[in-house]
Design a protein around this nucleic acid. Structure first.
Lengths: 146, 146
DNA sequence: TATTGTTATACTCTATAACTATA
DNA sequence: TATAGTTATAGAGTATAACAATA
């Protein structure tokens, strides 16, 4: 079977549509818990890496330190994180999850599993799809010089 | 081959990574032409549907009419579109592409083709990937009630 | 001197509500 | 009375630059 440019373009369109819908789905689910995508990403990082300096968060999320100040302000005001003094560097603060923050991350983990099942459980040729996705990811990473 | 929850979750992670990178790639390419994703989406709509009222643009993009005012303001100031009086309804304005706007859309079309080739030209089992993607898209559309 | 985080400022995208001109 | 678009206002996310405290 030959692969026409038209076939490739319409597949790209479907990939872009999936991308858009994943974003909408995440935005909707997170809004129910009082979170946004950037705030949830920040919590997710702390959940996996442990209490982190704002500097580390800025690098991990590839945004400016000033941006992190704003995200942490919002998350702290809503009770998802606390700022603690860094034990050895008095310039730095450690951002940690509260109980509520930890509970939200547990919920996110369950949502992630539910979404994976929804998308893939009834997919016949999962192997081939996964392999194709890996190829696409590699091509994108190369193109963006990663 | 059995499909474990772990396999499905890590494939979802790769899909989310692709989604993020596509967004970054688009943001970067568009920035070079002085455009953002929302502004390019608006131009893309006019490019395909022809001169449109702001009302129609708001519905197509699923954003508020006020939001369209801002996007059109920016695009008009940068020379991508013009506001023309509607021929029969003096309340409405028709937003049309300028030559520059048309040229940008031609470039976007070429970029789209280039990206499709980059991602899929060397992909072995393109058919299976495309089929899987269609399944994923259908599941997402259902879940979001479309 | 270099680094951490904040204050000051500004831009884009988004929304709702009130208002004007027109249908 | 309803619709098209704007003014007014607000909030989130993003950025750079200047600055204070500390390393």
């Amino acid at each position: 079977m030959v692969k026409s440019l038209h076939d490739m373009e319409s597949t790209l369109d479907r990939l872009l549509a999936v991308s858009l819908l994943l974003n909408e789905d995440a935005t909707q689910s997170l809004a129910k818990e009082g979170l946004s995508i950037p705030r949830a990403q920040l919590l997710w990082h702390i959940h996996h890496q442990g209490p982190s300096t704002q500097r580390a968060l800025a690098e991990a999320m590839r945004v400016s330190p000033r941006n992190i100040t704003g995200l942490v302000d919002g998350l702290a005001a809503a009770g998802f994180v606390t700022r603690e003094p860094h034990p050895t560097d008095r310039r730095a603060t450690l951002v940690s999850l509260t109980e509520r923050g930890t509970a939200s991350m547990a919920q996110m983990t369950r949502d992630h599993q539910g979404l994976a099942r929804l998308l893939f459980e009834q997919l016949d040729d999962f192997e081939a799809f996964a392999a194709g996705l890996t190829h696409v990811l590699n091509q994108l990473n190369e193109a963006l010089g990663r």
